[in-house]
């Protein structure tokens, strides 16, 4: 296959000042790639392009990636305007070139969200997600101070539901897909996982309040329930967790004197 790629190149990082994102400035560059095999992964196609760029003395395109198995959540880019590209339930690293045809033009851009400033080219800063987790995405238990694992039985259906929420890979596609750049799906997945399990119930009120407060402080937008987040989520995290988190949140607000 022969393809035309239009790739966002940005050498200076974005900055956030007084809650406003100031772009580092960049532009779409055009590249022609040939000899693309349908069995290549999308990132392998970019590897080959990068090798060509290097050989001709040009700087390679920077993008985040690591596991290339759809689990670390590192890869992150819009492909033709869609987070992680056209295939449902698939991260960029698991997308293969057989999803494209000879002669296609493909547009590749970094996540665009106020809370995810661009670092370089396709690489963005998602540390806001880490800070939300630090605000409460855990059970407060020290190493070694606990009971036997089978002491508290958990219904299989509950454990499975908690697991479904816990499969979030923290890639940020939900934010990238949302017109408001909301992080509700990401936050709700963690809040739901921990509030459903008996181990996480003690702290459920403060957890949801603190995590939501941090989410707002990071500059993520409000949720208007469009469902784009869940539709684009490579792990298919369901919108029902957002509803669950809203219940948790209002329940907590009604009874707490926190935050």
């Amino acid at each position: 296959m022969k393809l035309t790629l239009k790739v966002w190149r940005q050498s200076k990082p974005d900055k956030v000042e007084n809650g406003k994102l100031i772009s580092g400035g960049g532009k779409m560059e055009t590249y022609q790639v040939s000899d693309v095999s349908k069995d290549m992964s999308f990132l392998e196609m970019l590897d080959v392009l990068n090798e060509d760029l290097l050989r001709s003395g040009k700087e390679p395109i920077v993008f985040d990636h690591d596991c290339r198995e759809g689990i670390c959540g590192m890869c992150s880019m819009y492909i033709n305007g869609q987070p992680h590209g056209p295939q449902q339930g698939t991260t960029t690293c698991q997308l293969h070139m057989r999803s494209f045809k000879d002669g296609d033009t493909i547009y590749i851009e970094p996540w665009r969200a106020k809370a995810f400033p661009v670092i370089k080219d396709l690489m963005v800063d998602r540390s806001a997600f880490d800070r939300i987790m630090q605000a409460g995405g855990y059970v407060s238990v020290n190493t070694g101070v606990t009971v036997d694992a089978n002491e508290i039985p958990i219904a299989k259906s509950t454990a499975d539901k908690a697991f479904d929420a816990a499969t979030c890979i923290g890639c940020g596609a939900c934010v990238a897909a949302c017109k408001n750049a909301s992080a509700m799906l990401f936050v709700s997945a963690k809040v739901s996982q921990l509030s459903m399990l008996p181990q996480g119930k003690t702290e459920r009120k403060t957890r949801v309040e603190n995590m939501v407060a941090q989410m707002d402080a990071e500059g993520f937008g409000a949720c208007t329930n469009t469902g784009a987040c869940s539709a684009e989520c490579p792990k298919g995290i369901s919108m029902e967790y957002i509803a669950r988190m809203n219940r948790e949140y209002y329940g907590a607000k009604l009874t707490s004197n926190n935050v």
Binding site: T143, V147, A149, A155, L197
Partner: peptide
């Protein structure tokens, strides 16, 4: 054996049987 106790306490959703045990 302590590892499993620790992970369950943190909220790691291990697979369970219908009776609710691991």
């Amino acid at each position: 054996v302590n590892i499993i106790d620790q992970c369950v306490a943190q909220g790691v959703p291990f697979a369970r049987e219908y009776g609710g045990l691991l």
